[in-house]
Design a protein around this nucleic acid. Sequence first.
DNA 1: AAGACGAAAGTGGTTGA
DNA 2: TCAACAACTTTCGTCTT
Length: 312
Amino acid sequence: MDEKKKHKHDENTLVCPDCGSTNISQDPETSELICNDCGLVISEEAIDYGPEWRAFDADQRAKRARTGGPLSVMKPNRGLTTEIDTSNKDSRGGKISVKHQTTINRMRKWHRRISMTSSYERNLATALQELEKITDRLQLPKRVAEEAAHIYKKAVEKQLIRGRLIESVVAAVVYAVCRKNNIPKTLDDIVQISDNDKKDIGRAYRFIKRELNLKVPFTSPSIYIPRYASALQLSEDVQERAKEIVEMAMEKGMLSGRGPTGIAAAALYIAALEKGERRTQKQVAEIAGVTEVTIRNRYRELKELLGLEDLE
DNA sequence: AAGACGAAAGTGGTTGA
DNA sequence: TCAACAACTTTCGTCTT
């Protein structure tokens, strides 16, 4: 169990370092170069206005900040806020009279009430921090983070967060955005880098999806093929063949209920056999995060469904 | 010795009363 | 809220390479 977890984590952090070779596309909006194999952002045209350090809680943030906060659409008020400080001095450092202090206190109260301290803002602040952590660890492109932020805001406005951990909801939203954009990340991938329960995240995902009417398309197994293939160092040939197999299986309606990762894994296993680049079931199973048994079952189903000849 | 195969029992999540 | 259910996993024995 421990070993398996470790392995999965490696898979996430070290995905195809050389995938710059072929499968790259450019995002029309942000002009980011994105690897289709794993969603890795190869290079970004946009300048990052954020700080070079990272902080996970308010304390760290306060210690590390040297100037004002970074400008970002990912922050409430774009990171620009003003605050009336509590030292009761005027701009030249002189004391403010007691008479004026009450006025200023009142101003301070309202100012804070209006700008920063509403629960909405506070909620969003933690959420965006968490969102940054997750998208960073999964190496997801910026537009995914932005779409997720947008959806999350809607969820807060509709009061859907009540009774749920902010972190779980953020993870759920990220998962939903990945699904929507056909980015090959499983719920397990998200759980690996999040500190929360799979149960919580899954429940939050279903809830958010239903309440916000998110239209999440059926996940085609083929989106996992490039990712698994490069992790297994299989050729383009094998990938193409595996995609063909998936296509054929889908036409015959094999998609009912079965997990897409298992189908992708089995198709890849078959394709690799056909092209003489044999991988063991165990190898494929580990990469795909399913068991050998599942691969065997899908393998058997695919074989009889497609009438594939026995291969040796 | 390692891989492939499949039966049987167990697990976590969904669905419908 | 509970029970039935499907998909998947775990475990294990057997056969093949």
